[in-house]
Simulated scan of single mutants.
Amino acid sequence: MVKISVLANQVAGEHRTAITPSIVARYTKLGLSTVVESGAGSAAGFLDEAYAAQGASIVDRKEALAQADVLVTVRPPVPADLMGVRKGTKLIGGLAPFADPARMAAYAELGVEAMALELLPRTTRAQAMDILSSQANLAGYHAVARATTELNRCLPMMTTAAGSIAAAKAFVMGVGVAGLQAIATARRLGAVVSATDVRPETREQIMSLGAKPIFEEIQDGDQLTAAVGGYAGEMSEAYRQRQAALVSGHIAQQDMVITTALIPGRPAPRLISDAQIASMKPGSVVVDLAAESGGNVEGAIAGEMVMRHGVKIIGLVDGPSQVAVDASNLFARNCYNFIEAYWDKSERRLAMPTDDALIEAVTLTRHGEIVHPRFVQAAAA
């Protein structure tokens, strides 16, 4: 029987797990046996007893590695922690492929078949396996929750015997999955919400959530190239300057700003300057969800809260981990959906053809070599 394993997380501050007790039952029904390192789910509130009740074997790390045909993970394990894993074992999950080329080379040397689900294309077929979307959704939620606890005022409008309290103003920069959830969460909490994005066509998405879109009107000659595949065409320098001036003036009026802009494999774009922070009211809060990738906000430090010009700047890095129960359940389902899609029920084995579009997109290493075209080129350079 094919065995799927999960290890206890070794990353400080990470509470999620890639297999939850409810998913053990699904793997069993599919025809796989689940092996769990003792304590793998405890930080998220999933105790060994809950796994065992669903039929999982609870073992130590050495056995979890030795028995694994498939190893699922939230964060990329340090190669030293994989000593004892069998060659050919499939390592599936969040592998942060752009962060550390040496780690990828070490995976190849260990002989594991590493598959980074972050690299899944944004297609209908891959949607249920998309760990970036499921975790970004929770990151957007937690960004607002964290900002609310640090803000020196309440969010909703209130009417009291002593007088009225105006609603706080929240501004979301970047309208992807995290940004959309941040808009929705701030709205639910009663803030007056506005948002912007480099893609002017996201205006309708912003309005659909009850927020105000902050965009300069497009004039003749503003768009230099046509939009393709749902992405914005390149805008003229004149438009970019007008938009930057509009956003800069808008930021000065906000109580809370959430930035969410990320570009896979590249440093995060700078959205807010120190001068713009200085224009904000003392006591305001800025949450930077891209802090680990260089930051959208000048002066943001990953994993820390700093004060600049009386404004709190939070370099948020552990949003999904702070809601570890839900984040683990979603992540575990993503991994299950990926594995289930390639499970041959008649032969009770994984069938992952190398020419399959999704397998090609996510596979980093195979047969002792780095095989992903993007990273083969990087290693050669």
Rank of each mutant, 00 (worst) to 15 (best):
T354G: 12
D222T: 05
N329K: 13
N152M: 15
E347S: 15
F171I: 03
R203L: 07
D69H: 13
P269Q: 08
K345I: 09
A378F: 08
V74I: 15
R333C: 12
T159Q: 12
Q322D: 12
A244V: 10
A99D: 15
E234H: 11
F171W: 04
P121F: 05
Q219Y: 10
R122W: 08
A44M: 09
F331Q: 02
V78F: 13
D220T: 14
A143I: 03
I206F: 01
D344F: 07
H309L: 07
M115W: 00
E304N: 11
M104Y: 08
E49L: 10
L262T: 08
M256H: 01
M115S: 09
L271A: 04
A324E: 04
A145R: 10
L289C: 07
V177R: 02
K87I: 12
P320I: 04
T20Q: 02
T159N: 11
R61M: 09
I314L: 13
E292W: 05
V2E: 11
R188S: 08
P156W: 02
I92D: 01
V247R: 05
E217C: 04
V85P: 01
P156F: 05
V24L: 07
A105H: 12
A327Q: 04
A161V: 12
S248D: 12
I214W: 01
I131V: 13
I370M: 13
Q181K: 06
E292S: 14
A166F: 10
L189H: 10
I301S: 08
T185Y: 02
M1E: 10
A381D: 13
R199N: 15
A324M: 10
E109Q: 15
P76E: 13
V257R: 00
R122C: 10
